[in-house]
Amino acid sequence: MSARRRTLAAASLGSALALALAACGADSPHDSSTPRTGKPSASASPTGTGHDHSSMPGMDMNDGDGLAGEKDGYRLTSNAATLPAGKGTDYRFAVTGPDGKPVTRFTVEQTKRLHFYAIRSDLTGFQHLHPTMADDGTWTAGLAALQPGSWRLFAQFTPHSGTGRSQDLVLSRTVTVPGPAATTPLPKVSTTTEVDGYTVTVRGELMAGMAHPLTVTVSKDGKPVTDLQPYLDSYAHLTAFHEGDQAFAHLHPRNKVNGDHGGPGLSFHAELAKSGNWRLFLQFRTAGRLHTAALTLHVS
């Protein structure tokens, strides 16, 4: 099992954090296994000059929880501080290494070299994408339409070489989508939710900073679902974001993959470093269709 399938770092002051989920709150789920096309322009390609980016728009320098724009010499760089509202758009970025140059070699994890996530500050509009990379190290993520407000964009990757080789990293930046931004209240804490006719139930009492088992059960019309198909080398993909600061967490179930026979129970090893409410997004596939379920979980 790769390091990314285990708990992913997402803790303040360097604490280990793992958990995740995937789904699309009020918006429709969006997976970019077939991303929007668009060649990176020269002007959009970060140069990786090694300059101090601490004052760059969208660059947070705090470390931990996936909220940092830089870690161990690796930076998430982009010229885009704003994105248009109400229409699909390409977001171009690069990952630069400790030498200041764009990284072009990444380890394949969960069938992809890089995973990309977008979430609005009120934890709506979740998108999980798989961008394409140009030869110069510029990535292009084809985002679906964004609503006005502040958005945080995460890149999750493992460098294939250099000082960060085999190290799982999550870096993020913020962008502004201009226009009137109405905040959507976070849905109440619940152990169950429905999506596309499926009922997803979560069981587990989580405490901040402690590892606990978390079980997700999928049913339909009152009957257990046993035909989950592999998605990214697993039967589900779980991403979570912390209310207030959008701290990131992610993991996959520990169930062994055996063809299109997943479910109904999915077992996770979860550790969330922060107390409070987390918005969970669970992605799973049946009959070739990707479903995204969302619910709010409280961590003591």
Rank of each mutant, 00 (worst) to 15 (best):
Ala181Arg: 10
Thr193Cys: 14
Pro178Ser: 08
Thr174Trp: 13
Lys188Tyr: 13
Gly262Ser: 05
Pro264Ala: 08
His237Asn: 05
His242Arg: 14
His261Met: 07
Gly244His: 06
Pro187Val: 15
Pro253Ile: 05
Arg203His: 13
Gly179Asn: 07
Val200Gly: 00
Asp196Leu: 09
Pro253Lys: 09
Lys188Cys: 14
Asp221Pro: 07
His237Trp: 11
Gly222Met: 04
Asp245His: 08
Thr183Ala: 15
Thr199Cys: 02
Val225Ala: 03
Gly179Gln: 06
Leu171Val: 07
Ala249Ser: 12
Gly222Trp: 03
Gly222Glu: 00
Thr184Lys: 09
Asn255Ile: 08
Val257Met: 06
Thr201Gly: 05
Ala240Asn: 03
Gly204Trp: 01
Lys188His: 14
Ala211Trp: 12
Tyr235Met: 03
Leu238Gln: 09
His242Gly: 07
Gly209Glu: 13
Thr226Gly: 04
Thr226Pro: 04
Glu205Cys: 02
Thr217Leu: 01
Thr191Ile: 14
Thr201Trp: 04
Gly263Ile: 09
Pro187Arg: 12
Thr239Ser: 11
Val257Glu: 01
His250Trp: 13
His212Met: 12
Leu238Trp: 01
His261Arg: 14
Val189Lys: 14
Ala211Gly: 08
Phe248Ser: 03
Thr192Cys: 11
Thr174Met: 00
Phe248Gln: 07
Gly209Tyr: 02
Val177Lys: 08
Gly263Leu: 07
Ser219Asp: 13
Leu169Trp: 00
Thr199Gly: 06
Val200Thr: 10
Leu171Glu: 05
Phe248Arg: 02
Gly244Ser: 10
Arg173Met: 10
Pro264Ile: 01
Val216Lys: 01
Val218Glu: 03
Thr239Asp: 15
Thr174Ala: 00
Pro185Arg: 06
Ser234Gly: 04
Lys188Pro: 15
Asp221Phe: 13
Lys220Glu: 00
Leu214Tyr: 00
Gly259Lys: 02
His252Asp: 08
Leu169Ser: 14
Asn255Thr: 12
Pro213His: 01
Pro185His: 07
Asp233Asn: 08
Glu205Gln: 10
Leu251Asn: 13
Val189Gly: 15
His252Val: 13
His242Leu: 13
Arg203Gly: 10
Asp221Glu: 09
Arg203Ser: 15
Thr226Trp: 07
Thr215Ser: 02
Val202Lys: 09
Ala240Val: 12
